[in-house]
Design a protein around this nucleic acid. Sequence first.
DNA 1: TCAATCGATTCAACCGTTAGGATGACGTTA
DNA 2: TAACGTCATCCTAACGGTTGAATCGATTGA
Lengths: 347, 347
Amino acid sequence: MPKGKATSFDIAHLTGVSQSTVSRALRDSPLVSEETRQRIKAAADQLNYKVDKNASNLRSQHSGTLALLLFEDPTADDSHINPFFLSMLGSITRACALRGYDLLMSFQQLSYDWHADYADTKKADGIILLGYGDYLAYRDKLQKLAAQGMRSVRWGAVLPDQPDLSIGCDNFQGGQAIAAHLLDQGCKRVAFLGDASSHYPEFFERYHGYTAALEQAGIVADPALQVDAAESTEQAGYNALETLLVRKVPFDAVFAASDLIAIGAMRALADHGIKVPEQVAVAGFDDIPMARFLNPPLTTVLQDTKLAGETLVDTLLQLIRNEPVETRLLPVRLVVRRSSQFGSRQA
Amino acid sequence: MPKGKATSFDIAHLTGVSQSTVSRALRDSPLVSEETRQRIKAAADQLNYKVDKNASNLRSQHSGTLALLLFEDPTADDSHINPFFLSMLGSITRACALRGYDLLMSFQQLSYDWHADYADTKKADGIILLGYGDYLAYRDKLQKLAAQGMRSVRWGAVLPDQPDLSIGCDNFQGGQAIAAHLLDQGCKRVAFLGDASSHYPEFFERYHGYTAALEQAGIVADPALQVDAAESTEQAGYNALETLLVRKVPFDAVFAASDLIAIGAMRALADHGIKVPEQVAVAGFDDIPMARFLNPPLTTVLQDTKLAGETLVDTLLQLIRNEPVETRLLPVRLVVRRSSQFGSRQA
DNA sequence: TCAATCGATTCAACCGTTAGGATGACGTTA
DNA sequence: TAACGTCATCCTAACGGTTGAATCGATTGA
């Protein structure tokens, strides 16, 4: 009997109704009577029928699929994808599945002409963008896509005049919490490692949280204590800390804009024989899985990736359905570990 | 001019040929003359035309898409996906992109009825399966899919009578290399943490590599030194090591079947005041990114995820094209770090 | 009793490609 | 000059659903 795959016509023949009724019944259209619907559904799973996604999509002009674009700095090593984004990836995947959408994955270089892949191919109904990096690099591509009606949400900071919508965690509050915590520990001169320009909006806001906390404590941020780390990699963190040391400005704490930067910084400190946390307290941002396994374990800011993934997906789906949406800031949580126990000379 | 999206008919009108010629020209069919092909292609990218994937797929009955299924133990925490598989994910994604295929992601519970999603929906041309875990749990589902003509490759050990094809690294050789290395360091009693039953074939082979190395050194494996760790998680590793301690059998080295298990074991050792590597040498398997950041850095076996991803994808594509393929074993490399420097009491 | 009404179902067009066979112009050969 | 093969292109039928409009039998109100 199962010569090929079952089509809706097969079900129609089997139940003695027309194919269009089958189609309607299976999608729970109110236009078909309860009784025939039941019969049709029974026949459908007796024949092990599945709607052909391609046919369905072609006719209804949407794909039931979301695309996830993960941007990386072009210099980043293939094997070391930022663990934070991998974690996001997991939660996004799950969120999509729960909502009946498929997820198309793709890693992109910022430079690549990726928008063409999603322009009119109808591969995806919407796009989720993930990745730190210079926002300007994809701004106009996003704009083009938006003009064609492609919806997108981006993980990251809220920006003026953006062609898309962003969902992000409260980077400002996170930065503030970290800096306040370091000051609480008795640190007086807290360095900031991470780009403080507006090209990396997340880092920018973390930086502002940091300066706000200093201000609250009556301290003016010393520009000499801020070092650019253009990308979120261990190497960038290592270099940034070396730069800081070269400047010969005293510091007793380091707030790295990401955990990976913090890891690099800690390695540089170790290489210079500087003890963490006894001489210098260190804190990061992201709470990637390896943060708790470092030596000493890293104080950082936890971003709720599960909530983040769900929010991204839900927001995108709302956009696609043309429902009103708004930019959202997700709460963060300070996770204190040993790397920041500055006063612990006795412990 | 651009009222909606451009179709092949628009190009046909513009260039004064029939739509079918357009279709052929764009796919470089030898049936159209060089000159018209050029004209058509020019018009195509002037109109910013993209073939509609859905229409194309529907007609040609394939999807240009591969699906990646990542299996997790049902107990695993949402946020802690095995980093090794995440790394594989990255390389698979890239390999697909390079070959012009899209990648559909999906995380699955072993128990879920996932095969239905891919049965006749034509969502994907083939499936890549990733994940440690009890193979028997998905064996029959694979069999069903295979019967319907769905191709699949699996990352893992080669097994008898499997309905799919597997690509895996040489777990036996890796296990042997680790054990030999530990013996080289002067260890006499090497424990093995990880399921040694055939339900977890990768672990099984690593275990056999381990016993082979012992044998070569004239040592008979002591069953008391083998502890099951049913899943590849830190917690399982912690528990396994505690079990080992309860047995009160002496040991001076631990070979964990995966890095995550090793991490858990190291934490348990630390909790019991046992020094690594001075009192007990530790080694893992996988070389996940955090392995080098542990304290002490973890000796482990590096699996070439880039090669692995490419091989998986290429093999699957060969299967889809009905080309002959064969199971392959990928080489592994021992990565020695401090955790196994057993003789380093002086260093 | 007849037309209007209503729910349930069928008809048929359409989504944008692909691909096999037909067409027609042109040059070659008997 | 008629028959024939070639080459480039065109015609047309799918592919498997979705959806607005048409149909049909049965009920209802006048």
